[in-house]
Design a protein around this nucleic acid. Structure first.
Lengths: 214, 214
DNA sequence: GTCTATATTCCGATAGAC
DNA sequence: GTCTATCGGAATATAGAC
């Protein structure tokens, strides 16, 4: 039932709880939460049904553990990136890079499935995001303040709206880079992840800066 | 098994097949496809399990029928909107309005659940989109050509990328307007749908026009 | 902590009466 | 076309041995 913290680096073998989280992360991302049975997770993790109930209590507890497993990394990266921004003269491009970077960091550390899962939950509209929702999405206060400097006079409601959709786009793109490539046509097969990130930052900068004058 | 066309307007009562589609559309949108059992759908539609198998053959056939149920409307609206665009001097704002309008039309005719469902499937990354995928997303050829006039010199891959994300944002916003309001803070409770659409068009125009100069 | 065995409920799909 | 009844299997969850 109790969710343990990640072990110190250098630990030899993955514990049963860790293997369950890794397996659930992938299966939830690929097939959706409701479509994955505990038996499937248990089988992928090489253990038995009782282990899931012992460690996480229920299906919901398992999802919660999966979401928490990379939350600290994102929040820490977000905080670090914000303090590194210069005091004045921030452009929309600067903000876009700072906004996308924490998710890129998760991707680089093998968290593509986590990103896709969170993107799925964001698109689902339900309250399954649980822990994630408040600490990850709604608490964008610092970003909103910085965004106000870039776009003075724009109502706060609109700035929040742009931030929400910037996050939506970021998760949708980075949550499945292979599909992102596939959707852009046959010529995009050699698109590197760095190039995708660069184009993504461009879109996020567009969203944050607001519509062009007509 | 056979999916019938929508009845002529003026038909008095909804058929069993129609009630099943309506119920499945809502349940799939709210809880995800994999999380909805045929028994839940059957109960919401006020019929029995055998009816679903009789009309749609299987769970997959039911999803297919739900997706098709509003596809013609979107495709027709898309075609109409494109032919109404002026020959020359198109702005990114013009394109954004033309891009969003068909989805707004679906929303206005009670299709919010359908939009949310399609948005869910787009975020899921699987191939469950089936019929929708080719005719709705990938065949953006006309839009890409128009976009090339607005943004000359930009690689086609990037234009496709922008269109994909424009659709992602559109579905995410219009698929749950109540949540869109909620996410923008307590002050947004009185946001009308028309105001949301106006801000959405602004974001889509930003995405289509590309990042601002820095 | 990890396993097997099991209790109980629910699932998709079909058969057959009407 | 619509219903009841039912089959075979899979689901969550727990009990209890080790």
């Amino acid at each position: 039932m109790v969710t343990r913290a990640a072990p110190a680096s250098g630990t030899r073998a993955a514990t049963t709880a860790q293997r369950l989280i890794v397996a659930a992360e992938r299966l939830f991302a690929e097939h959706g939460i409701g479509a994955v049975s505990l038996r499937t997770v248990m089988q992928a993790a090489g253990t038995n049904v009782a282990a899931i109930h012992y460690h996480f209590g229920s299906q919901e507890g398992l999802l919660d553990a999966v979401l928490r497993s990379r939350l600290d990394q994102v929040l820490g990266e977000r905080k670090a990136v914000l303090t590194e921004l210069p005091e004045g003269g921030i452009t929309a491009g600067d903000l876009a890079r700072a906004f996308v970077q924490p998710v890129v960091a998760v991707l680089a550390s093998g968290g593509e499935h986590w990103i896709r899962l969170v993107g799925r939950l964001l698109a689902s509209g339900g309250d399954e995001l649980g822990v994630i929702s408040e600490s990850f999405f709604e608490r964008n206060a610092t970003f909103v303040e910085l965004l106000e400097r870039v776009s003075p006079g724009v109502p706060r409601r609109t700035l929040n709206f742009r931030l929400t959709q910037a996050m939506n786009v970021t998760l949708n793109v980075l949550g499945d880079t292979e599909r992102t490539r596939r959707l852009q046509g046959p010529g995009a097969a050699t698109w590197t992840t760095d190039e995708i990130v660069a184009d993504l930052v461009g879109i996020v900068a567009s969203v944050l800066a607001g519509p062009p004058a007509q």
